[in-house]
Every structure is written in C-alpha cells, then in structure tokens.
Amino acid sequence: MKTDTHFWDQRRNTITSSKGGWKVGEAVYNHRYSMMDDLVGQKSYMQVMILNATGRLPERRLADWFEARQICMSWPDSRIWCNQIGALAGSMRTSVVAATVAGVLGADSRAYGGSKTVIAGLEFIQHAYALLTQGWTVEAIVDDECAKHGGKPHIMGYARPIAKGDERIPAMQKVSAQLGFEVGPHLQLAYQIEQVLIERYDERMNINGYVSAFLSDQGLTPEEVYRISATLVASGVTACYVDAVEKQPESFLPLRCDDVQYQGKAPRPLPKAKNEERPFRVVAYTGR
C-alpha cells in the first residue's frame, strides 16, 4: 500500500504565509499592514521588529522601551565573550556581517547574553507569581528555587558573573518611569525576591530579572521575548569587530605558544601498526 503523502503533496511548489509577502505591482504586506503606506515613516523600527517577532504591533512606548534595553545589552567591550568573537573575526579580516552574526550566535547561550537566558528569567518570575497567587510566601518561593540548586541562590534573573549589582537596572527604571510605565505585580514580586536574596546571600537582581518581570507585566511570553531578543548583542559585536579590523591582522590579543597551558599527555612515539591494527596506514611521502 502506498504511503499517504497528501499533506506534503499539497505544499509542493507553494508557499502559504501567515505573515505577509510581496504582491508584485500591488503592495508589500506585513501582518495585514501595507509596509509602504502603514509602516514606513509611520512606525518605529522596533515596533515593526516586534510585529515581525510576535505578530502584534506594540504601542510606541513599549517599542521605545525595547530600544533602550537593546542599547543596555550591547556594549563595545571586547572582553565580553560574544564581542570577543567579533574582534577575533576582525583580526582575521572576516566580513562585518559574518563577524556580527557569529557574535550574535555566540550569545545564544544558557549562561549570558539576554536572549536565551531571558526565557528562563520569564519562566521563573511567571512561575513564582503563580505560586504567590496560590498563597506562597516570597521566602518559600526563594527556598523552593534554591532547593533546586543544592541550596545555592542560583535564580535566573539574580546575581551575575564578574560583578554584584547591575548598573543597567537604574537606567531602565528611569526609562520605564519616563515612558509612564507603572510597577506591575511581577516586578513588585521581583523586588521582594531581591530583598530576600540581599538579606540572606548578599546577591541582587540583574538586568535579566528586571526585564523578565517588566515584560511579564506587559503580557509577553518567554518565547516571544526570546524572538524579539534574537539580535540583542549585535551592535556591540560590530563595534568590537570594527576596532579589530582597523588594526593590524592577528594583533588582537596575540598568543605565544606558551600562553596556552598544555595539560595533556606528554609527547610520545606513535605506536607501530601491528598486523594492520590500524587499517589506513599510508605510505610516507619521501620527496622526489
């Protein structure tokens, strides 16, 4: 009996988009909007970017808030891992596009970067808020989360590598106030959790914690924020690329042989192949 493949047969040589497209000679459509009539010159780039990532056109002030966050999350310090990728690429004379894309890909990390980490940040605060509404105390929520990490205060959105405290939070608090955003219930809870962590562990909220709670109050899902954040670190990577590409090739953080610590096996002779123990022995090149 022939396999039923009609699902795929219907899709051959055909694209059905739920997002939009170019009707040549008519218009370019984007989520029911005419790009040239309704969006270009009418809406900000961030509004359209969020429309493309979520399917919803946000109000201007939320897009402006995202733009401020985008600036916060991407700075030209080539010690930061993703930026260093950009600088190394500059040192190798890679194209700016490849360098920037490589840095962006580097920041798609479970440890830092604000794109993938924001998923865990939003999931945590939304889960914590659900527990709060079920009658849990803030202390119990902290205990429960710490218990998952051997009693350590490893809570997504709190503490950060390199430093304690986060200069980006007061900057974003100022932006939120200027744009007229109130402190919502998720952010309120995030501050209460921070207070418990300060008292118990001397650890504070980081920008991910602030962003996750703020955006939970705006009704966004973790996946939506991840999608909006796809290119979050791009401009800082570009800056570090430019810094390196304008200098001598291979001059960014050059390493001598002994600048890498070798911890492996000491030099040893290659074992002789016994009865074709290794199958692909090639004849040594002896020169002409």
Binding site: I162, A163, G165, V260, Q263, G264
Partner: peptide, 15 residues
C-alpha cells in the same frame, strides 16, 4: 551599587 566580584579567572586558556 556595582561591585567587582574579584572571582579568579585563569591566567591562560588550557587544553
């Protein structure tokens, strides 16, 4: 409000 943690980072990469 931002303090350096003073974590110890390796002097060299290792392999």
């Amino acid at each position: 409000d931002v303090e350096r943690r003073n974590e110890t980072y390796a002097d060299k990469a290792s392999t």
